[in-house]
Design a protein around this nucleic acid. Sequence first.
DNA 1: AGTGAAAAGGCTTTAAC
DNA 2: GTTAAAGCCTTTTCACT
Lengths: 153, 153
Amino acid sequence: MLDLDEVDKAILRAMQSDGSLSVTEIGERVGLSQSPCSRRIAQLQKKGVITGRRVMLNARELGFQTMVIVRIRLHSHEKKTLEDFQKAVRAIPEIQIALLVLGDFDFYLRIVVRDIEHYQQLLQSKLVALPGVREMQSSVILDVVKDSSALPL
Amino acid sequence: MLDLDEVDKAILRAMQSDGSLSVTEIGERVGLSQSPCSRRIAQLQKKGVITGRRVMLNARELGFQTMVIVRIRLHSHEKKTLEDFQKAVRAIPEIQIALLVLGDFDFYLRIVVRDIEHYQQLLQSKLVALPGVREMQSSVILDVVKDSSALPL
DNA sequence: AGTGAAAAGGCTTTAAC
DNA sequence: GTTAAAGCCTTTTCACT
């Protein structure tokens, strides 16, 4: 972990608040002219602080109207069991998020599907085939109240 | 929901696979020259299919080493209870994701903090003050196995 | 070291076809 | 959808603080 000066933090805050700002616009917001702003952003990328950019799409408009949370308990916590499971999870495109957690369940998945029928199909064809699963519970997501990836800098 | 032709879908797939591709690069990947590619992307934005862009930061490097899932059950499902709770959730920057779900719990939150101490502080100062909460359970996230927002187009 | 000004280069968008 | 031109943004260079 590296520490950044206030200007770098201001740049990151600006970028987080709006991911489509130009370097020039970011510079204006943080009180910097183009060249130092451009250099600092390049540095932040080189240091690995800025890891990438993402395009956000409207899932509804594209026909993905259903999201599901799946909680999973594995048979064991052996290394191989965990690795096999994780590898299988990464290969399923409908699984957007997979978290290994401490507590009653081992994994939380967030899944995006077109509709419930699509989910049932996915469940029967792929999710039940995930290796090492002892128990699985699904909860349909009714509403996404907040969906940010911003850090509270 | 609108349907898009194969070229538009290819554009969206390319953008999802790498959010920092230029219009020119996207064009190359989908077999389109610059101007039609630019026009199509502008259209997709205008139609609301592309909703925005996001910069991804390295949470670890920036000192956010702990993430927690919090499951919450409310006292009631009345409109006012839900709205008050959601409003309070949106105002807490450490809460990145908040999902209203069907099932044993009402809400799933994903929280990002510097460390466990920071979490305890947040819990005591803000989370316990969330309105309408009947029960709260927390699970520490050990590993983010997958974290995508891509749709399986 | 880091900043600011100016110029060069690249990319995106617009306009005409 | 293509080609070509205009315009904007980014980046590099250089002088300065």
